[in-house]
Design a protein around this nucleic acid. Structure first.
Lengths: 209, 209
DNA sequence: GGAGTATGTTTCCTATCGGAAATTCATCCG
DNA sequence: CGGATGAATTTCCGATAGGAAACATACTCC
């Protein structure tokens, strides 16, 4: 049975950061950090060894702060343990680390209708999120129904779910996007889109908060 | 005519991404990086030596990739050169190419296949973006094919495009998501998903960078 | 030109890293 | 208990990181 099923399905959940170890990542206990990552994945030194290509003994010594790995080795560690290098050194505000999660079912977002768009804000329950996702219905042949750019600081990702839209931005030629196409852009650059299909177009938008 | 059409239609364009370079995924040239930082401050090896407490020769060898510094030394480097550790390892926008918009056509992202997922990274041409979008194919009935949580700092938004998946996270009960459903969660909380439909499931993922 | 100065590179040589194997520690059995 | 199995730790030793000092290569200024 897969470990996830075990962990997620039955009662035996991997507890957050159980009382035992606080997992605080003080100014750079690389050893602890490595060990923690390994433990979280329930990897033995042997498994970690296979993954990283490093000797068990080496890993053991690193975890116990008995040696300072060379940069080369650090890279192997990051790769093998499937963690991004910068992440390895980030001072995570660990502590309680209470994960958050919110589900939004099809059609159950918070609607916000404007002249041009029919937005449906997703994941509204979650305050203080770094991204703002919403689904938007662009009315069919809305070509002439609006008059100005939308512009707001941040970045935006747009993915076309259904239909075809013409996507306009300042400085660029307009482009037609069909279902499955996507675009990423700085949203302080004026932008707008219109449906060019016979039906409404449906797009998924994610903005930085 | 709408102002958008006007504005977008005329010829004045900022050049997008320099078409030439494919944005190489560098193996992280630490030496070059260090040398850049030092040069930028107009520090001599001697000065850098005083700042870091490392020998001139050592610095020289590191910059010329003639040796792999130990982690201890890397720490001293970061401290002495007044740069945050994670920053040292962040993938730089190599070419400097600050594109402000990038289109990714259906199926034309950069594939990344793992045992469990078939990712397609979107908008890869755009370096230094705050979000990382990708589309993922989750193999049908992949229920037993993986064994561990995915976990990385940041937040994540998931939208189901096709099929049905079971979405697992630590601390929560697993939940089944169908096309059109979405979830927003802290991605440092272990998470994973499997397809529970007869066909592969297709999901759109956006992570904070 | 030659002496002097400032910067980066290349020797050494020792301390230590990193891997193979031996050793310890823990947990199951019979 | 003794043996067996699987994990982590600790030797041991060759390879290499890192420092001191010598060397190389500019630039000055006289």
């Amino acid at each position: 049975m897969s470990r996830v099923r075990e962990a997620a399905g039955n009662g035996r959940m991997i507890r957050p950061l159980s009382g035992g170890e606080p997992l605080r990542l003080e100014p750079l206990k690389l050893g602890e950090r490595i060990r923690d990552i390994r433990r979280r994945h329930s990897w033995t030194l042997e498994e970690a060894s296979r993954r990283t290509g490093l000797a068990r003994s080496t890993l053991s010594k690193i975890e116990n702060e008995q040696m300072s790995p060379t940069f080369e080795v650090v890279q192997k560690l990051a790769a093998g343990l499937e963690i991004e290098l910068p992440q390895l050194f980030e001072a995570t505000a660990a502590g309680g680390a209470t994960g958050r999660r919110t589900i939004t079912r099809q059609g159950e977002g918070r609607p916000r209708v404007t002249a041009t768009y029919e937005h449906e804000l997703l994941s509204v329950e979650l305050a203080q999120r770094k991204m703002v996702p919403f689904k938007t219905r662009v009315r069919a042949r809305s070509f002439d129904s609006f008059s100005d750019w939308v512009r707001h600081s941040g970045e935006e990702f747009l993915y076309v779910l259904e239909g075809r839209i013409a996507f306009y931005t300042e400085f660029y030629e307009p482009v037609v996007l069909a279902a499955g196409d996507s675009v990423y852009y700085d949203s302080d650059m004026g932008h707008a889109c219109v449906s060019v299909s016979d039906d409404d177009a449906l797009i998924l938008w994610v903005s930085t908060a």
